[in-house]
Structures are given as C-alpha cells and as structure tokens.
Nucleic acid binder design. Sequence first.
DNA 1: TTGAAAGCGCTAACAG
DNA 2: CTGTTAGCGCTTTCAA
Lengths: 327, 327
Amino acid sequence: MAEVAAAAGVSPTTVSHALSGKRHVAEATRERILRTVAELDYRPNLVARGLRKQETQTIALIVPDIANPYYPASARALNDGLSSAGYLTLIGNTDGDPGLEAALLRDMVARGIDGIAMHSLSTAPAKARQIVGPSVPLVMAGSDDGSQSADLIATDDAAGIGEAVRHLAASGIRDVGFISGPEGQTPGVFRLTSYRAATQALGLHIDPSWIVNTTYTRDGGFAAATRVLSAPTRPQAVLCANDLIAIGVLDAARAIGLRVPEDLAVVGFDDIETAALVSPRLTTVVNSSAMVGARFADLLLRRIEHGPGAPFEQVVLPTSLVLRESA
Amino acid sequence: MAEVAAAAGVSPTTVSHALSGKRHVAEATRERILRTVAELDYRPNLVARGLRKQETQTIALIVPDIANPYYPASARALNDGLSSAGYLTLIGNTDGDPGLEAALLRDMVARGIDGIAMHSLSTAPAKARQIVGPSVPLVMAGSDDGSQSADLIATDDAAGIGEAVRHLAASGIRDVGFISGPEGQTPGVFRLTSYRAATQALGLHIDPSWIVNTTYTRDGGFAAATRVLSAPTRPQAVLCANDLIAIGVLDAARAIGLRVPEDLAVVGFDDIETAALVSPRLTTVVNSSAMVGARFADLLLRRIEHGPGAPFEQVVLPTSLVLRESA
DNA sequence: TTGAAAGCGCTAACAG
DNA sequence: CTGTTAGCGCTTTCAA
C-alpha cells in the first residue's frame, strides 16, 4: 500500500480511503490511485485489515463430518447466504467428539472469526457460549438446553415423528422400535424422546430391546438393526434418528431376508438426497439441511448487525413425513 | 499478552517464547507464565500472529460446489491430512464459473492462506498460477495444461474409460454414446477424449448425436439423456462424465420406458457413495474423491515445506471399472 | 480535501 | 536466561 501511495504521490491514508470509500477523495486523485493500484496489481492484505478492524470477514462452520451427506447442503446454503456480504466459511469437523468441539470453538475464536455456525452433537449452548465468550455471534443447530445463550435453530422433531408413528399405526403396526445415535448425543436424544411421547400417546407398548444406540452412519444402522431384528420379539417397524442409519437398516433387513415394508417398515429422518434413491425408496421425516444453512446465515447476519445485546432468537423448522416405499 | 506478561512479571517476549517453545525459558518462569495464562484464560490472537509470521495456518479449498456429493469426501480427507499440522480449511464454491474461480483465487491469496487446493472446472493451471503469483503453494485437480505451473493431481481417465468401453463391447454393444459436462469444462473434456480414443481403438462407429454436453448434475443428465434417447438412432449404451449425470440418465431411461441394462447400458464416473445405492446399482469408473483430498494434503504439505523452488509434482490416480447392475 | 501518527497483537532480531 | 525494539500492513483518530 505504501508503494501505491508513493507511486500515486499521496499518503497511505488516502489510498485506504480511495479504496474503502470511507471518506471523500477528489475525483482526480481517486482515479490516479485506482490506476496505480491496477498497474501495480496491488491487493490489500486482509490479514492486516483483519487485525486492525478486528473483523475477518470469515465465519466458522463446525459440523460433525462434512462427508456425512446431511451437512454439505447446509454448508452450501450458509456460504451462499453470506457470500454476498463478503464472508467466507472456515470449516471444522468434530466427529461429535466433545473435546474436539470445544477445541474447535476455541481455535475459531482465536482466529478472529466474525461468527460461528455449529451443528452440535455433544456441546450444549451454555457450554459453547462459555468457551467462545459473550461477544461472539454464535448460532447452534440441533441442541437446546434452555439456557438462552445462543441463537438457536431447532427442528420440530415431535411433529415429524408423531406423524410417522401415526402413519405406522394407521397401517396396523403396533410394535415400533427406535434406533438412535450415540447415547446422550443430540439430536438423537430429542428424537428418541419424541418417539417415546408419540408411542405413548397412541398407547403402544415398547419393548426395551427395540431401542438401541449406534453411530449416525450406515454401518451403525446395519449393526444396530442386526441386533434388534434378530431378537425373538422383533418390532414391526423401526424409526431411525437419521437417514444414514435407516439405509443401514435396509441393508440389514435384506441380509436377514426381511421384506421392507411388508415384514419391516423403516422410517428415516432428514430426507437427504439419497433417501429417494435407495431401494426401496425411503419414507422419512423431512428436515431440510439447506434450510438450516440458510437460517444460519440469516441469524448470523442479524446478530453481527445488532451486536451481542439483542435477545437471542430461536427458530424452529417444521418437519413433515414424506411417504415413499419403505413404510 | 501484555496482561499476561505484566501479571507474571516478565516481558511479552518471554510469554511468547514460553508458549511457542522457540527459545528456552527457565522452568520456574515458564510454569508461572503457563499458570497465569490459564488463570486469565488468555488465548493468542492468531490474526496478529498471522500478520507477523506471514502464515495463517489456513489452506483454501476451491470446489465447484461442496453440495455436489463428489467433493465432501475430498474436503474431509484434505482436512484430516492437514489438521495434525494445525491447518484449517477455508472453503469456496465456484459453480465452475471462470470469473468466480479467478475471484476466489485472488481473495484467498489476499487472505494470506498458506496454500490452495483447487478442483478446477474452467481455470487452467497456468492461469491460476498467474493469478496467485509465483510463491503460493497451489495444487490443482482435474486440469492439466502441460504448463508446469502447479502441483497436479490427474486421474487416469483413459484407463477407466477404456476398460468401460471394452466391457460394453464384450457384451456385444457397439453403439456407445457419451454425455459430458459443460462444453470445454474439465474434467469432461478429458473423459470425452478418452471415450473417442477408446471407441476408435475398437473400431466402433460414433454417431454425433450420441455425444452431448450438459451440466454435471442429475437434472443435467436427465435432460441430456432425454434428448439422446428419443433420437431415432439411439445408442445401446451411454458413458457419463460423472455419476450424477448417470443417475439422471437412469431417471430418463425409466421415464422413457427403457430397461437398464437390457435396453440401455449406463456407465458412470467417480463412484460416489450413491452410485451403489441407486436402482439399478450403477456400474461406474472409480475415481476416489477421498484419495484426491489426501493427495492434496500431501502435496500441499510438501510444497509448503520445500518452498516454491522445488519442481512441480504430478500424481496420477489410477481408475478402475466397478461392475454393478447398470452395465 | 489530505496527511501524520498511533496502534491492532503478535514474533524476531538484537542485545545483554 | 531475559528484555528492548521494531515492524508485519492496514485503518482511524486527530489535525490541518
């Protein structure tokens, strides 16, 4: 920048203002500066600008695993919602590990990011807020501890799962199992709770062996289903905490020789693209990842604009059951 | 940092060294400093460190679209290969637009990233190098202009496509079409070339109407296939520039009432997870996205270590045909 | 309409 | 074994 200033015969201050437009610069000087900038191919150093302005035009996206098909759509929508404001996305994978979630939150703050969007599996908002400090814009999805310490995006799990259970009951199914994520991890726990409530509301009996924890993966679903389905009293249907698990259940049903949905009805959660592609096509609860990403962007932008003082917002995304072939 | 220094009764320099370990600090002082750091919950400002050291521990990943199922695995593998060295990934989506590709390259450099990994659709290595300057570590995949201006990751398209064409010919198929990506975009052009070479080697005739350009999406594949398959002289098989296109072709075949593979054989490219899940399961050329990400990390690390002087490397990833149900 | 000077928070000579 | 000083490249008072 000093070079540009020298070449254009002005002070660095003026170059800065000519580029930022933050104060008026005489038309002639401005043109001269812009020409010099082009000639010298000068590009502002954003690290220096970030240090000085205490804002980096970067927002952090913390996810369990970007390779899990649920998250990329969220990442893309977040990016698109923020790119017009000049933000770029810095990404971190946690695999749901509480230690990594915490470490990544700290690291992101140390990097001076302007906001954090987090799909949390193990860290509650209060804990996350404690780690990042009071002034960092923080929006979390999939986790609500009632602490009012971050902007929140929730999914109406109860509605979707209630709809699913009623749909099954309407087809005469009374024995419904649930395959959740790792013990204690959100959002599985919420969905499990919704399942308990929904079955109880219909007066359905639940055998404890029908409820099982596993990882949020296809392999996890396969392993869990293999256990549940080979028990003497297997359920007629299983609800799954996400679609990946449900696809694993489909695998297991095929391996065991169970027809879906005749012998076993399967319902997923999320409606990732693949859900409509597997065979049989998966009946699932729609929980749009792209919608979450878009809301991340909205809330972050609003929080950045209004500062830490404004009351925290909570948006709850609707869910709906999409009927396909598996149930 | 000044606060910590004051509280611990030492100079900032000593605090810096106590934390970085770059020079010896007396055990007692070090312990005192570390305690103070913990008490004050001090966290180094990485933006300031970045400005001073001219390195940000950040690498850029530029992809056409992170929501396209091919790229997340690459992103994850890149991240994993780099995270132990303390790097985080800054992501950019270009949609293959040359202008965006260029703009993103510039922006990343301005942000002082320590290296760039790019899945390029429209920008050749020479052009990218010109934009980022001579000293920025740059690894590109899917694009080679023979200019020796960046580290390169290539896929052995010819081998995989040759294998596919021979497999089709062995089943008695002689009329093979090719659905590519947008005109002129890599990697479609390379694959199209490989297809021409492979069919010619077997003496197969190609009708010009069997070769068509479209976007690298399921919808693109559907639209293109609808055109190709409704022509009077439709091919017996189509090769596709990627799996998403192939899945769209499957959709189109179903819509038209063509049985796959009996009436139409379909071969994809990439072997994304979904390829094995669709019905019929997709026969495709394996081109591991995770492998690309891992190589990105390797090459970037090596380049960062050795500096811009070392000769550019080029790794070519093997491909292989995986036989499933669609061909 | 423009400039001088200070400073964001750190690290690396240089010096002792 | 430790401290002083300078400076990374910007933006923003303050002053003219």
